[in-house]
């Protein structure tokens, strides 16, 4: 698959139907190492569903996902949906795709440190000592070193999201998918999270970010795509997207989202 060699993530023609409704109508994205791709679009346009199809939290009806040259193996399941053909392979590839949720989804019975070392120990089979070492570096990095023994319920939303990012980073993923990482946060907590994500962009991480933070998207991404009703309305450089998009719809959206 020489054509994919330069792409760390290659997602092709994702279709997804919920009930009778076509939510995704053939969406593709390719990311090279270091690409930061912002995915924009109004609520209900299919952004979350698209991200979730990439790591098979949602099973697409059509399309394929290739991670660093390895395609997620699928077979056709009930109702024509693509289902994973090899759970072991899927788990292995998922471990290489980080996912940061809008609602953080930390494990509430584990404290911050335990949340971070859980997957490296269970999935990557790191020793506890190595996992803790890795976690401590990350805790410093996201500014939670003093909160390592706190349980998620005792943290602010911003702290929880930073812990969740550290949990994802602990797997040393090749690609990280962010689904509106700051949408559930009080306005004054948004920046502490954006700063962490911004610093990841700076160090050359490959990321797909669904966000409504237009200023941030423009600053950190080198590509943008705009979804509308399950289709790519427009795709291109942030400059073009934010300043003179071809699509009237995108221009209207931008006008109402940039203050």
């Amino acid at each position: 698959m020489a054509e994919n060699d330069t792409h760390l993530l290659n997602v092709e023609g994702i279709h997804k139907r919920f009930g009778g409704q076509d939510v995704l109508k053939g969406i593709s994205v390719k990311a090279k190492r270091g690409d930061v791709i912002s995915i924009l679009g109004s609520s209900g346009s299919g952004k979350s569903t698209f991200l979730r199809c990439i790591n098979y939290l949602e099973y697409p009806d059509q399309g394929r996902v290739v991670v660093d040259g390895e395609e997620i193996l699928t077979k056709t399941g009930k109702g024509g949906m693509l289902v994973p053909a090899d759970q072991k392979q899927l788990a292995r590839l998922r471990a290489r795709i980080g996912f940061v949720f809008q609602s953080f989804n930390l494990w509430p019975h584990l404290n911050v440190l335990e949340n971070i070392i859980e997957a490296p120990m269970q999935v990557l089979k790191l020793s506890k000592k190595d996992a803790i070492e890795r976690a401590e570096t990350l805790l410093d990095r996201v500014g939670l070193a003093d909160h390592r023994n706190h349980y998620p319920s005792h943290l602010s939303g911003g702290q929880q999201q930073r812990a969740a990012i550290a949990r994802t980073l602990a797997m040393e993923p090749d690609v990280i998918l962010f689904d509106e990482p700051t949408s559930a946060l009080d306005p004054e907590l948004v920046n502490e999270v954006l700063n962490v994500i911004g610093s990841l962009a700076e160090e050359g991480r490959t990321m797909l970010i669904v966000t409504h933070e237009m200023g941030f998207a423009r600053e950190v991404s080198n590509q943008t795509m705009f979804l509308h009703e399950g289709k790519v309305e427009e795709q291109g450089s942030p400059d073009k997207m934010f300043n003179n998009a071809d699509s009237e719809r995108v221009r209207t959206f931008m006008a109402s989202h940039i203050h």
Binding site: R92, F99, L106
Partner: peptide, 11 residues
Amino acid sequence: GEVEAARAVGM
């Protein structure tokens, strides 16, 4: 969401 987070890290 807690289960999805576990799946997403490859459990």
